[in-house]
Nucleic acid binder design. Structure first.
Lengths: 243, 243
DNA sequence: CGCACTCTTGAGGGGGCTCAATTAGAGTGG
DNA sequence: CCACTCTAATTGAGCCCCCTCAAGAGTGCG
């Protein structure tokens, strides 16, 4: 088991720096690691999980399922994301989390969350911080889905995925490997699978971005930013704590 | 200035109970009250406010503005809602807050938030809790906007507004007074003003709900729940802390 | 009385939907 | 080694929901 000190995520500047004391506290809170295969349901809507997690490696999808089987993808999970805060703080998850790839997760015990907070109040602040960042991301998605047409939405989503991956070192020379299905992207942006597919083709034809066989390549960043309505100045991702 | 002990919001069961000690701590954190007129911008996107607020009376709208002037309403603000957590925890608001009616707000000093957390760990936990509830509400809106058609979205929104108002005692025999504009509802649900208006008319004709001159009356709750895709069992709102 | 704001209603067009069929790739088992 | 199955991506056809444009009514206010 990797110690928090040696956690490879810590070097990325998107994460707020740790004091040695913070580190010691969080190390005590950590109870182990978990490895799951692609396609595993890590947390289930309505469940009251005994564990909370931080994603260390791999990708996942957070989604809500409706009575008629429709699915809304709330967000994509990247390394460093804290999973299960809702269950920890309210008593029940309001959405499910399913791994898209094999994953390695840092495991925390829900019961000791309270103890953890008492011993280290500043970390409670971090919990709120994490949650506020999460809300911000969901609000941005809502804005995109509510106000923009298909090509802008898809451009926005691809750009966000790219930036989030970049912040945790996932970008390689040939692009970034994001093995989500087109259906996941469609369910995230409130579009049909068919129209998502056609819109991806349009982005390719217009020389803006390519996403084939899981590999995403942003060809024209400026063009993508313009299309997605993203402010180039504000494209720097917000810093947030790592638990 | 009303003391926290006498706060009229405390009696509503949607809010998690206070211990006397909690109350004393939060009273120290409170620095005053603020009255604003309808149409006031309380917090501005991009700003780093020195104050945080809890709405005591009146209604407001949280929204993001896009470069081209489009607007996405993220959520509606009801009494008991904490405003400005983003500014308190990240350094900048990611959306604006504008009052729809005259409002009375409880004012907290941002600088002392840190002190408050240290002195009262349980309340630090509440901050995370509040933030998680807020994220949940936004995720629900995203689900509605992303997956449902116009009439379902509007039905969902009206039902949510009604339930949220009911939880803080705003429902009168003739209904609930919600003086938002149709444009606000349209911007919240990602619909045009025109289509929102026509959809409201359809809800009226079908004997489901009426919203005229600011007064909202849910005529057929079961029908509205069915239409909005809301689970009747789950319609009870989640409990949350009051700051 | 003119201006501004909000709500309302009609008309026409298009963006994104559903239905349907095809291709490609990965298992799986005989 | 090849049928068979299953999943994911792709492409075409037709249609409808919701968009925009436009005009009008009701209300409050300077």
């Amino acid at each position: 088991m990797i110690s928090c000190r040696a956690c490879p995520l810590r070097r990325f500047e998107i994460f707020a720096p740790f004091s040695d004391d913070d580190e010691a506290q969080i190390q005590k809170f950590k109870v182990g690691e978990m490895i799951v295969e692609a396609g595993t349901t890590i947390l289930m809507e309505g469940a009251s999980s005994a564990q909370l997690y931080t994603a260390l490696q791999g990708l996942a999808v957070r989604y809500k399922t409706l009575a008629d089987g429709q699915r809304q993808v709330i967000n994509f999970v990247f390394p460093g994301d804290f999973i299960g805060l809702q269950a920890g703080v309210m008593n029940e998850m309001q959405h499910s989390v399913e791994s898209t790839t094999d994953m390695r997760l840092c495991v925390f015990d829900r019961k000791s969350l309270w103890q953890f907070i008492k011993s280290c109040p500043p970390r409670a602040f971090d919990l709120a911080w994490l949650s506020a960042v999460e809300e911000h991301l969901v609000a941005e998605a809502l804005t995109s889905v509510g106000q923009r047409d298909a090509i802008s939405r898809i451009a926005w989503a691809l750009l966000r995925l790219y930036q989030r991956g970049d912040a945790v070192g996932l970008v390689k020379p040939r692009g970034i490997f994001l093995p989500f299905r087109q259906q996941d992207l469609a369910d995230a942006m409130g579009l049909s699978l068919v129209h998502t597919n056609k819109t991806l083709a349009r982005l390719r034809e217009r020389g803006l971005a390519e996403w084939r066989d899981g590999w995403l390549k942003i060809v024209d960043i400026k063009g993508m930013q313009r299309l997605s309505g993203q402010d180039p100045d504000n494209s720097v991702s917000v810093q947030r704590p790592l638990m």
